[in-house]
Amino acid sequence: MDIILQNICKTYTKSGVEALKDISFEVPKGELFGLIGPDGAGKTSIFRILTTLLYPNSGKATVLGLDTQTHFKTIREKIGYMPGRFSLYQDLTVEENLNFFARLFNTTIAQNYELIKDIYIQIEPFKNRPAGKLSGGMKQKLALSCALIHRPEILFLDEPTTGVDAVSRKEFWHMLKRLKNEGITIMVSTPYMDEATLCERIALIQNGQILSIDSPEGIQRQYPFRLFAVKSSNMSGLLRFLRALKTVQSVFSFGEYHHVTFLNANASVVDELKIDIKRAGFDQFEIKETTPGIEDCFIQLMPS
């Protein structure tokens, strides 16, 4: 196991915020592990504890078999960390940033160029541009290159895709897949639920607690209800109508559909609904059973 957390609790003394409540999980070597949850769920606190920046109030965390509190110096040599905010020097050029971080870890760009080549080659045409003048997607690639330059055994990426457009996000996940194939353990967090399926295993986290931890497919399989997708020409009217129905347990909009679960999803419930809908006068009504996504699971697991 590359990462082990045992009953980790963390309360920030200044603000009194209870960021983590008894968190335990393990990440084996070479896994691409995702922490999925909204802002304030505790993702960053977990990263900071694992990267030895923060002491937990109680519990024990080990990284590469080393205790994060007593062996922080050794751990710091072996991990790569990309914090949530863009944490490079905006007034240094792309190349200067990379050079600096290489030196910081006692290595050179040449030594590990192979590892970062695929990523760095995309920003190399701009190597003389100050990092602050790069676009979101390119900043992220540079930050990843800097975090990788010393060939770390574990890569910690805290919300690398936040605020980045969908195209750059897709590219980024491709890069992570390649790095995983190099044998690097990767722990990544994201608030975008659709990215969860790109990880091997994920932990859904909310309010400092883990809601569920499994492979994305496993989490989807555990979804306890039959889920239906409905749509009509008047989506907001349909949403209000469904919410008012007694047979409906939950209804949330999901893109072009609303996702509905029923209190008692027997065979007749769909037919009954169709009749109700027709009576209420909704046009182009459509209903079909659908497989739940990670976001459906997250909503279902969230304590109400």
């Binding site: 900071r48 990267t51 030895t52 920046l53 110096k73 710091r76 040599e77 991990i79 960390y81 914090p83 949530g84 905010r85 863009f86 944490s87 490079l88 020097y89 905006q90 971080f101 910081l104 870890f105 006692n106 800097c146």
Partner: peptide, 13 residues
């Protein structure tokens, strides 16, 4: 403020 201190601390320097 810029968060770079975090990265520096995590380095072996």
């Amino acid at each position: 403020e810029s968060g770079t201190m975090e990265v520096l601390l995590v380095s072996p320097f």
